[in-house]
Design a protein around this nucleic acid. Structure first.
Lengths: 147, 147
DNA sequence: ATCAGATGTAATAACCATAATTACATCAAA
DNA sequence: TTTGATGTAATTATGGTTATTACATCTGAT
């Protein structure tokens, strides 16, 4: 199974806040329009990002702001915030290997460290990319549109 | 969403073939018992591994054999064989970002290369681990049981 | 004080992949 | 030809994703 689109949605949301936040008030309805996703889904993601301390959302008046410098928010922060995988485990292990079989009762010993290595490689790369990269490239592509 | 348990199941299957293949005939029913997973699911995975040329399955008589030296079968081969993610894409991108919004119509330009980097890091690590590693550790843990 | 516009959230449904299960056609060695 | 195995279709249950409706709640502006 693929990683939930909540992840790409969250980054799209940050790109919108970067781009439009100083001019307009970035509301869940605006974000729903830009992403073409239901506003309730957007608000759920905003709630998760808020819960992780990455943004602040104004009740009543509306609008969203980022709490930290963009180069201090990594893809890994966002990935963790929107709960892309259950229990933080990338791989779904079959639940009840047989304890009667020598392989079955040792398969976790054999495999867990290797799965961890792979997951770690993913997370390490996620941690290398920040919202500053997104801001830079967003500005680049938007300015190319206006030539 | 997590990566399908077909992946850990496939590795468990290879560990069983390594361990028991010379002594017993490794059938889908035997594998179903060791993994505690329905034999039809096992046979589906065996079919995918066979389709990728990693194993041979004897019709009629039954039993499974590996086609290549174990150090020439990587986790990535297995990951690809059992179709862990749709279209080979790890991340599910939201389908229809708005073309009316400057961010919406550029979000793929902005994000695709970064998602590719992350996916590549995962696949590169998968390619570093082979069934020879599984064989070595299986033998290690099984022999530790018999002390 | 109230109104307007926004967020927070519960509840429901549609959709899709996973996984289990039953059933049966097919195969190949004994 | 019998036996035990694979290959596969069909059905069901389960669970996560996403859409949608509805409404309580909040807050700045009038």
């Amino acid at each position: 199974m693929q990683i939930s689109s909540r992840f790409t949605l969250a980054i799209h949301i940050f790109a919108c806040i970067d781009t439009f936040g100083s001019e307009y008030k970035v509301t869940s309805d605006f974000l729903a329009g830009s992403t073409n996703v239901n506003p309730v889904i957007i608000r759920k993601i905003l709630g998760q990002l808020k819960g992780a301390g990455l943004i602040e959302v104004a009740r009543g008046t509306g609008g969203t702001t980022v709490t930290r410098p963009l180069d201090e928010i990594t893809f890994l922060d966002i990935y963790n915030a929107v709960e892309c995988v259950e229990n933080g485990e990338l791989f779904h292990f079959h639940e009840n290997p047989s304890t009667n079989c020598p392989v079955g009762r040792n398969i976790h010993h054999i495999l867990d460290d290797k799965l961890y290595r792979v997951q770690n490689a993913l997370e390490k790369e996620l941690a290398c990319i920040t919202l500053a990269d997104i801001k830079r490239d967003t500005e680049k592509y938007l300015s190319e549109e206006n030539r």
